[in-house]
């Protein structure tokens, strides 16, 4: 855990490109998967000295059409405001990535909203040592139980996407992520460009 924490801190301090990220954290993700395999085989491991995690599929997911996005960050804003009563990119569950570092990228012409994919087999839930991440009974969204969460950030390291779709609230020291607003995501409603859509299926997405 110490090793993981160190890696995570480095990552939080200095943003890395997706390629660097994957290189740096593939070992963590792989450890998670390996751990799951070991757990199924009945082999105790440090991460998975806990009950097996199997979540029902989410009934909905926020889908992104980056072509339509106008980069206004209204989704970030309403997400933070409705959940935390405050505005700030750091408190948002959705993140509009504007990365124009490379000369080939077009300044102000490229933005990519990053919403949680509500994975069928979420690595964040798998990584959680206290099973704080569960499927919401109503929507199937993968949600963090704020009571249970110990703020270890293993879920963030385990998320295979960049930037991670699960984040840490620095003040509260708790992880938080997209809960689909209880079945009616406000980010989809507020988006002026129709770049976000809420896709549902009763069989799970």
């Amino acid at each position: 855990m110490d090793e993981n924490t160190t890696k995570k801190e480095k990552f939080m301090d200095k943003p890395v490109s997706r390629r660097e990220f994957v290189a740096r954290f593939s070992s963590v993700a792989a450890a998670g998967v390996a751990g799951a395999v070991m757990a199924q085989a009945g082999v105790p491991s440090r991460l998975h000295a806990k009950e097996k995690v199997r979540l029902v599929p989410s009934k909905g997911v926020v889908m992104v059409d980056a072509e339509k996005c106008i980069g206004c960050r209204s989704c970030e804003n309403i997400c933070a405001l409705s959940h935390e009563g405050a505005v700030g990119t750091a408190l948002s569950r959705i993140h509009v990535l504007k990365d124009w570092r490379e000369p080939g990228s077009s300044i102000e012409a490229e933005f990519h909203p990053m919403a949680c994919r509500q994975c069928p087999n979420p690595l964040c839930a798998l990584a959680c040592p206290v099973n704080a991440i569960t499927a919401d009974p109503k929507t199937g969204a993968r949600v963090v139980d704020q009571e249970k969460c110990v703020g270890c950030e293993l879920c963030i390291a385990a998320c295979p996407f960049y930037p991670p779709r699960i984040k840490i609230n620095r003040q509260a020291k708790k992880a938080f992520k997209c809960d689909l607003c209880g079945g009616d995501p406000l980010c989809v409603k507020v988006c002026p460009a129709s770049a976000l859509t809420f896709v549902t299926s009763k069989h799970g997405v």
Binding site: I70, G71, C72, R73, N77, S106, A109, A193
Partner: peptide, 18 residues
């Protein structure tokens, strides 16, 4: 041609070109 908005803008008056 695409549209771009500043922070929080529901309108997006800027045009992006690729």
């Amino acid at each position: 041609m695409g549209i771009q908005g500043c922070y929080g803008c529901p309108f997006g008056c800027r045009t992006t070109m690729k």
